[in-house]
Simulated scan of single mutants.
Amino acid sequence: MKSLNQRQMKSCWAILATATASILTATVGIPSSALASGLVFACSAKDVIVEVSRLDNKKLRYEAYNIPTNHQRPDLAINGGTVERKPNGDTLYRFRNKNYLYVAIKDNAYGRVLVYKNNKLIATKYCGDV
């Protein structure tokens, strides 16, 4: 009887997880692929949606979707970023693409995304600034 209850409990958790993923995908616009691989940062800013996920192989992935978007395919995807936790509590996710550097910053506020070209800051996008 005990193992039957454990199976039922696992089944309930699986259904709950699937329902939660479906609701987030439908209402917030987070793609189910990002949820399955471990979304660690999401930012809706003016003209762009940025997501950072931890893939099954533990590597980081940066995806940017230009607004308007249908979330079918990102406009920019970069694998193999780095993560750094600052003493002030901020978490920085860095991704390099040729001479561009994308930095997603998770802080105590809404967060932000910085874009550098040739080590010069060219854009700052504040999350929640839609």
Score class of each variant (00 low, 15 high):
49 I>C: 01
95 F>T: 04
69 T>P: 00
23 I>A: 15
124 T>M: 00
64 A>V: 01
101 L>K: 12
14 A>V: 01
108 N>C: 05
54 R>Q: 15
73 R>K: 13
77 A>G: 02
45 A>I: 13
17 A>L: 12
93 Y>G: 07
46 K>V: 05
44 S>P: 04
22 S>N: 15
67 I>W: 10
61 R>M: 15
71 H>F: 15
91 T>F: 03
43 C>V: 08
28 V>Q: 12
92 L>V: 09
122 I>V: 14
97 N>V: 05
71 H>G: 05
72 Q>E: 13
78 I>S: 06
19 A>T: 11
76 L>W: 06
101 L>S: 13
83 V>E: 15
102 Y>L: 00
79 N>A: 02
47 D>H: 09
93 Y>C: 08
36 A>R: 07
40 V>I: 15
64 A>D: 11
80 G>T: 00
37 S>Y: 00
52 V>C: 04
113 V>P: 00
104 A>Q: 05
123 A>C: 01
39 L>G: 10
13 W>A: 10
16 L>A: 14
110 Y>H: 13
87 P>I: 05
92 L>C: 08
41 F>W: 10
26 A>F: 15
122 I>S: 02
106 K>F: 08
56 D>T: 07
25 T>I: 03
54 R>T: 12
63 E>F: 02
103 V>W: 08
70 N>C: 04
43 C>S: 11
82 T>R: 13
117 K>E: 13
98 K>V: 10
121 L>R: 12
36 A>Q: 00
55 L>P: 02
63 E>L: 11
